[in-house]
Simulated scan of single mutants.
Amino acid sequence: MPSVLIAYVRVVNKINRTIGRVVMLGIFVMMGILLYASFTKTFFIPPLWSLEVSQFLMVGYFLLGGAYSLQMGAHVRMDLVYGNWRPHTRTWVDAFTVLFLIFYLALLLYGAISSTTYALEYGERSYSAWRPYMAPIKIIMTFGILMTLLQSIAILITDVARLRGIEIHDGLTEEEREQ
């Protein structure tokens, strides 16, 4: 396996692991905003921005955490047959199916770039009463899709290396991988 591919896998894994762990803390920010909105709705006039900001944070949380979830193998799988296969067969199937994911993410990235460009060019705003600009969340969306695409390519490289009998270690212990 070329050393540049091994370096790519390690760098992408490290970046996505760092982003994923930072983004995990976003759930507390969302909870705080929703708690504030609930409190003000009960006793005062609720702010216009609270629900939309929490929705934007949820989009960022979901898309920026997607690559980390993919890296950790935390996505849902239909394990009816897969769990009974030998590790070698699972690796073959994973290497094949990740190609579909890469294709899908490439199309999604194309659409995200187009949508982000439009939002930046024309100053697109939300249709809500608050009317925030859409460009910031679309930039985050595009970045999250890009990082998930890069992680998918890293997974493909790792699977191909495993099929060739090479294990790419990214410096994680088994305990860190299970977190």
Results as ranks from 00 to 15, higher is better:
2 P>I: 09
7 A>S: 14
7 A>N: 14
12 V>N: 11
14 K>Q: 13
18 T>R: 15
19 I>P: 06
20 G>A: 13
24 M>D: 13
27 I>H: 10
27 I>R: 05
31 M>V: 13
36 Y>N: 08
36 Y>G: 00
36 Y>D: 10
38 S>W: 02
38 S>T: 11
40 T>V: 06
41 K>F: 07
42 T>Q: 13
43 F>I: 12
43 F>K: 05
43 F>Y: 15
43 F>C: 07
44 F>C: 01
46 P>D: 00
46 P>W: 02
50 S>A: 15
51 L>H: 14
53 V>D: 10
53 V>L: 15
57 L>M: 14
61 Y>T: 11
63 L>T: 10
65 G>P: 07
67 A>N: 02
68 Y>I: 05
69 S>V: 15
71 Q>Y: 11
72 M>P: 10
74 A>P: 09
75 H>R: 11
78 M>L: 14
81 V>G: 09
81 V>H: 07
88 H>Y: 12
89 T>A: 04
89 T>V: 10
90 R>M: 06
91 T>G: 02
92 W>V: 00
95 A>G: 05
99 L>T: 05
101 L>E: 06
105 L>Y: 04
108 L>T: 08
112 A>N: 07
114 S>D: 00
116 T>M: 03
117 T>Q: 04
122 Y>H: 07
124 E>D: 11
124 E>P: 00
125 R>E: 11
126 S>Q: 05
126 S>P: 03
127 Y>H: 13
127 Y>I: 14
133 Y>K: 13
134 M>Q: 12
135 A>I: 02
136 P>C: 00
140 I>C: 08
141 M>Q: 11
142 T>W: 00
143 F>H: 02
144 G>A: 05
144 G>K: 03
152 S>W: 02
152 S>T: 05
153 I>A: 10
154 A>V: 01
158 T>P: 08
162 R>F: 00
162 R>Y: 02
164 R>M: 09
164 R>N: 03
165 G>Y: 02
166 I>V: 14
169 H>W: 09
174 E>R: 10
175 E>D: 13
177 R>E: 13
178 E>F: 10
179 Q>V: 15
179 Q>G: 12
